[in-house]
Every structure is written in C-alpha cells, then in structure tokens.
Design a protein around this nucleic acid. Sequence first.
RNA 1: GCCCCGUUGGUCGACGCAGGUGAAGACGCCGGACUCUCAAUCCGGAGAUCGCGGGUUCGAUUCCCGCACGGGGUACCA
Length: 467
Amino acid sequence: MTNDKPRVRFAPSPTGMFHVGGARSALHNWLYARQHGGTLVLRIEDTDASRNRPEWTEGIIRALGWLGIDENQYEGPFFQSANAEEHRKAVERLRVAGRAYFCDCTRDDVIARTGDSYKGYDGHCRDRGLEAAPGRALRFRTPDEGTTVVIDLIRGKPAFENATIEDFVIARGDGSVLFMLANVVDDMTQGITHVIRAEEHLSNTPKQQLLWEALGAQPPIWAHVPVVVNEKRQKLSKRRDKVALEDYQAEGYLAEAMRNYLMLLGWAPSGDREIVPWSVIEEEFRLEEVNPSPAFFDVKKLRAFNGEYIRALPLADFIARCRPWLVAPQAPWTAEQYDEDVFAALAPLAQTRVAVMSEITAIVDFAFLDEPEIDEASWNKAMKEPAAAILAAAIESYTDAPWTAEELKSRTEAIGVAHGLKLGKTQAPIRVAVTGRTVGLPLFESLQVLGRDRTLARLRKAATALA
RNA sequence: GCCCCGUUGGUCGACGCAGGUGAAGACGCCGGACUCUCAAUCCGGAGAUCGCGGGUUCGAUUCCCGCACGGGGUACCA
C-alpha cells in the first residue's frame, strides 16, 4: 500500500443527474492521476439505498465517458455497498477500542437539552456505557483537546480544534454505517493517497482524518476544490440551477468545450488564451494552483466557448455532429422530408451561426418542412409596404431566372432599385415568405438549395396572404 | 450561535508565492468596419483606489491587526 504513485478516486453517489460540479471534480482527479503516473478509481457510493437508482449509476458512467474518462481510465466502478463487511469490521474495531460508544438520544432529545438545533451533540451518552441494542446509534468519540490539522493542496493547513468537533454518528440504530465512516473505510481499503473533492466536504475532513487515525492508518493528502456557484454566488443546486451534464449534452454542448470550460473555473492556462487543446491542459494544469475562491458557472461564457469549438470543427465533423438534431425526435420533419445533400449545402453557412448544436434544427427547418414555420413577429415586421409589390416582382423575376444565388441576388437588387430600396430592405419580405423568419442563413444561397418550385410556391402563398 | 474557507473590473481569471514607473487576456457590454438579415471576422471603447478600516514603511494590492461581506458545514444525508 505504500507507493509513491498516487491513487485518487472519484466517488459520486447515484442519487440524481450527473452534476457539472461533479464533472469538474472527476476531471481534477483524472488529471492528477495522469500527471503523476497514478491511478483513478471510480467508486459509486450507493449506501443510501432509498435514494439510489441503477440508472443514475449508468448515467454517471456515460457522462464520464462523454468527457473522455472512459472505462480504461479508471479502476472500477466499485460499489460502496459491496464493502459493507469492511465497514462493519471497522465500526467494531472502533467500538472495541473504546473510540465509539452507543447512544440512544434522538435528535429531539439533543435539541431539548442544548436548546439549539445547531449546537451539535452534547456528549450525553459518552460515559453511560450503553450496550448494543436496536435503535442505538454508535458515535465516534472525538478528542477533547488538541488540534486536527489537515494538509490540503489548495488551502494549506486548515486547523480545527478538536473540542469543537462533536461526537458524530458512524453507525445508525439499525447497524448500517454512514457516509463519514464508509467513505473513509473505502478510501483506506482502496489505498487512496489523495482525496480531491469539493469544498463542501472541508468541514467533514477533520472528522474523517480522526477516523483514519483511530483506525491506525496514515491519512491521505486532501485537496478541496472550491464549489461552483450560480450568479447569486450560491452553490449550484439541482432545484434552482441547470446542473445536469446530460442536459448540456442534450442541448448540444460539445464535450471538448464543456471540459475546457470546466477546467477554467478556478484556473487558467499560461499566456493569453483560454481555449486550448486538452493536451495543453493535461500538461499545464496544476491542482495546487486552483484559485480557492468559488467560481461562477457562467453559461453565457460556456456558450461562447461552445460556439468557438463548433466553428473550429472541420465541415465533415460539423455535419456529422449535427445529425442527432436532424432526425425525428429532435427535428419536426420526417425522414422522407430530410435531404442529406441539401443539408450538406447549407451546413457551411450554418456553422458560424450556431453556438449550441440544437440550434441547427431551426436554422435549416425551412429546407425540409413543406411549409415554413412563420414567425409572427417576423411577418409583422417585414410584410409592410411595399412588401406586396416586392413579392409580386420577385415571383415574376424568379420565374425565368437562372437558378443560382448570384443571379437571384442581382435580380433582387434590381427589384430594390425599382422601389428605391437597398437590398437589405428588399430581401426582408422574401426571406420571411420563404424561411418564415427575419433572420437566418444567407438568403440567396438558401433559395438556390430550396429550388425554384418551392421558392415560387412560398412567395405566391405569402403574396395571397398579404392581398 | 459555533467551526472552516473565501474576497483582483459585471464574470472567469493573469501577473504577483512579491513592497516601488503600465494591474494581462477572455466572456459580457458599448461603438465602428464589413454585409442581403443574423452570425462570423476585424478595429476601437467604457469598466478595478486588487472587500473595508487602522498600523508598519519614504512607499502597500502585496507585511501586521481588526472589521465587513459572501460561501460551506454544523443530520441516525452524501
């Protein structure tokens, strides 16, 4: 177990969607292991049976894989529930050694005595010498004096007075163990040398370190990474914030952009750059340099990053990655309506216009739907005088035009000249008639791929609607 | 209440592990160029007394003390 190669772990509990904060911790652990020639172990902390569900575990594994942490990158997954025997033995050792005692106080009893729900346990049963019995929890006896100093790669050496650490419960009245104990025992049995996790666990750390020591082991090195917060500077929560990695994935954030952005929370690569290949991050990232203050998870900036990543994609990759949003459940058209070649023609125009993959659907929908989906605000804005005349002129002019973007553009310009309008104004009603919206891909290229018949049909329909 | 952590422009942060002529860059914002709309791209701009107050010093964002504010924890949750 003594080895200079670090063993780190990522230990999520499968109680919900995979949280972006968890993703960041996983990334930190992974990088630390790789940079030091160590090992990452994945441990699923499934002891809270009432809240666990197998699909959450699968979700975690899938999400990790999406970020690049696939099955080959870690040992495991191990399940905490499989380690129950070790937990029980550790509890017994502590009890026999006099480091833990039974307690029959309920929470209400404690509050009644201390008069404060935040006072913590008052040590009532410490010396009552209670025997094991159903309903009696086992509490760890914390030292009355002295200081517990934890070594933290990010925060230095936070010190905790032992007197302020209450005797905490390690096993419930039914004999099952709690996180505090199970987590430590698993880390011990799995030979973990560095515990890299979120700051919210910092105050648990002295308790856990005391447990390591009481069990006769050398505590690990800790590293508490600051929490990720929302715009109100509160820890991201499942209830009020969008935190599920899966949701971002489904919306069309690229894994590369996401992991790059996540790493920039609290850290930055050298030089005047933020968007860097993963290899640079692997080379330059230093856990010790992570800024200890909480970082705001700025979706706007993530979006900007994502847009840059999308634009940097080779066209073929861009097209391939659009696919999920171009078929049935995501797209409002059928497989028969969809035309791969048409999309390929539109893709280069669309690539600079999407910041998130899911936006591709609405940008090209006009090409696949039988009728464009007319946006009312756009219609009202564009279909003002002399829209009717422009549409009529366009129908007339387009009927015998060579069907190229260039030609359509110059014909439209001519229509504008006849009405004393610039191209910008002239194209507006045509654009809305054909695509349904006031903004979108370059119009004449769009018309070219749409084809003469469908273009004319839409212009006519709009013209009648206007009349 | 108690314990612990944090505090550089709206945001993420660089330089600073340091006492001494500029406090980077990016996102966002504003303006301009380009332009068939919107983007993209390019150019420019606004925006920080480095949380506050004392002290040490010729001089402090950097050292010392105090305070304020924010956050996390304080469960027979994880």
